[in-house]
Computed example of a mutant assay.
Amino acid sequence: MANTPSAKKAARKIARRTAVNTARRSRVRTFLRRVEEAIESGDKTAAMTAFLAAEPEMMSATSKGIFHKNTASRKISRLSHRVKALGEA
């Protein structure tokens, strides 16, 4: 347990930051899940709409430090290929 006032304040700040980061991560995962569900249903327009909403959410979380830039780019790229493949199949 923290003893000094500065350590107590740091513990409070960490708890607040953790809560915010958890909420942001959860929000991004929800957007990604919507894209996954639309892809599985085979509805290209729904998948495209969900993807267009998910992409800025993912990059916003990246700029906030929730995800690494390359991780976000990789996920977006893979989803994009899967959404694009819906029309071709």
Score class of each variant (00 low, 15 high):
Glu88Thr: 14
Glu40Gly: 12
Thr49Arg: 13
His81Cys: 08
Ser41Asp: 15
Val28Pro: 06
Thr71Ser: 11
Ser6Tyr: 00
Met48Ala: 14
Thr71Pro: 05
Arg12Leu: 15
Ala38Asn: 01
Ser77Trp: 02
Thr22Gln: 08
Thr45Cys: 04
Ser41Arg: 09
Glu40Ile: 11
Gly42Ser: 04
Thr22Ile: 10
Ala38Thr: 02
Gly65Gln: 11
Thr18Gly: 10
Asn3Glu: 08
Thr62Cys: 04
Glu55Cys: 05
Ser73Leu: 09
Met58Glu: 03
Gly65Glu: 03
Arg27Trp: 04
Leu86Arg: 03
Glu37Thr: 12
Ser26Ile: 12
Glu36Arg: 12
Ala7Thr: 01
Lys13Leu: 15
Ala2Met: 02
Ala61Asn: 07
Met59Ala: 06
Ala38Gly: 07
Glu55Phe: 00
Lys9Glu: 13
Arg82His: 03
Ala15Gly: 11
Ile39Gly: 12
Thr18Phe: 04
Ala85Tyr: 01
Ile66Val: 07
Glu88Asn: 13
Ala54Gln: 00
Asn70Glu: 07
Thr30Leu: 15
Gly42Gln: 06
Asn3Val: 08
Ala54Val: 01
Thr4Lys: 10
Ala61Cys: 13
Glu57Gln: 15
Ala53Ser: 14
Lys8Asp: 06
Ser60Asp: 02
Ala47Thr: 04
His81Leu: 10
Glu57His: 05
Glu55Ile: 10
Ser60Val: 03
Ser63Thr: 12
Ala50Arg: 13
Ala47Gln: 00
Met1Ser: 06
Arg12Met: 13
Lys75Ser: 09
Ser77Gln: 02
Thr22Glu: 15
Glu37Asp: 14
Arg17Ser: 15
Thr30Trp: 03
Met48Leu: 14
Glu57Val: 00
Ala19Thr: 14
Arg25Tyr: 03
Phe51Asp: 01
Arg82Ser: 11
Arg25Ser: 12
Ala2Tyr: 04
Lys69Phe: 09
Ala15Met: 14
Glu55Gln: 14
Phe51Pro: 12
Arg74Lys: 10
Gly65Ile: 05
Ile14Glu: 12
Ala19Trp: 01
Lys84Gln: 15
Val83Met: 05
Val28Leu: 09
Ile14Ser: 12
Arg74Ile: 06
Gly42Ala: 04
Glu57Asn: 07
Ile14Asn: 08
Thr71Ile: 07
Ala54Glu: 03
Asn3Cys: 06
Thr30Ile: 11
Ala11Gln: 04
His81Asn: 09
Lys69Ile: 07
Val35Asp: 02
Thr30Asn: 13
Val83Lys: 08
Arg82Leu: 05
Ala15Asp: 05
Pro5Gly: 07
Arg82Asn: 11
Met58Asn: 05
Glu36Trp: 05
Gly42Asp: 03
Ala53Asn: 12
Arg17Gln: 14
Pro56Leu: 06
Lys84Leu: 11
Arg25Asn: 10
Ser6His: 10
Lys9Ile: 07
Thr49Ser: 15
Ser26Gly: 10
Ser63Tyr: 10
Ala61Thr: 02
Lys13Asn: 14
Glu88Ala: 11
Ser60Asn: 08
Ala10Met: 10
Phe51Asn: 11
Ala38Arg: 00
Leu79Cys: 07
Lys64Trp: 00
Arg12Pro: 00
Ser77Ile: 06
Arg25Lys: 15
Ser6Thr: 13
